[in-house]
Design a protein around this nucleic acid. Structure first.
Lengths: 133, 133
DNA sequence: ACACAGCTTGACGTTAACGTAAGTTCGACG
DNA sequence: CGTCGAACTTACGTTAACGTCAAGCTGTGT
């Protein structure tokens, strides 16, 4: 299914990014493709991480912030000593996200109100031709 | 009330930005402070716009995108000829915002699920000491 | 008159997130 | 064996969004 390793080009086509971007993310240790000789091979884990990276970018996070978040999603079993601490951080991040979403909802409501005003303007312009107060 | 014009420093203190940032935004035509002689004076409109700018930044919009959005909020009465077109654009932007918010909600749910998994791990680690499958 | 605090305008520096170009390497194919 | 295309490395270029520093104006207190 989605078990097959993908080449860099397949990745680019699938996620609509450039090779440069994938190599850059690897250099920044956001993804860890295997090597078959010279070439990179991207597995399931890398695809999952890339998906999260692109999502994070749409939310306005920096790559460094995204790297932190990725570490929360992909904890390897070594780090269980710091699990509690990690959990703390994750809770904070979650709070951040929720705050942002609420603020975004507010912005949406604002814009929506603005649009209603716009509707009235359009109506008044198309019927008569007076300025509103 | 909030009718008084503010100096650049008052603005900086109020919004936690640097003078450089405000001048930069003016240069990019995001805000339009008056001049009293040499100095800038920021009125109610500029404060409203700055608030939207900072909000937009938290959402991950570029300053150029934000400028477009600001034009939707602050339509001066000249542009009513293009009102319908503006309205179109605003609807698209609104759809963007809603899509982003929904995606963010999804991300929140994901992270929350991850945290529940984390809780279990903490519990199992604190009581016994076996690796989960 | 003088100092000085605060604002101004350049102008150059910096960081993040890639783009782009130049040259190398490697497996497949005629 | 030659070469062709795809992926690789190295390295310099670019854009956005400011930071920082120098040098000059301006009002205000002493």
């Amino acid at each position: 299914m989605s078990n097959t390793k993908m080449t860099i080009r397949e990745m680019c086509d699938a996620f609509d990014v450039t090779p440069r971007t994938l190599r850059f993310y690897e250099a920044k240790e956001l993804i860890f493709p295997e090597r078959q000789g010279q070439k990179r091979l991207f597995g399931k884990r890398d695809r999952a991480r890339l998906k999260l990276i692109l999502r994070g970018k749409r939310f306005g996070f920096s790559l460094e912030e995204i790297r932190q978040l990725l570490d929360l999603y992909h904890m390897d079993d070594q780090q269980q000593t710091q699990l509690a601490r990690t959990y703390e951080i994750a809770r904070e991040r979650l709070a951040d996200l929720e705050a942002r979403r609420d603020e975004m909802t507010e912005a949406i409501d604002d814009l929506r109100a603005q649009l209603k005003w716009g509707e009235k303007m359009i109506a008044s312009v198309s019927t008569a031709r007076n300025a509103a107060e």
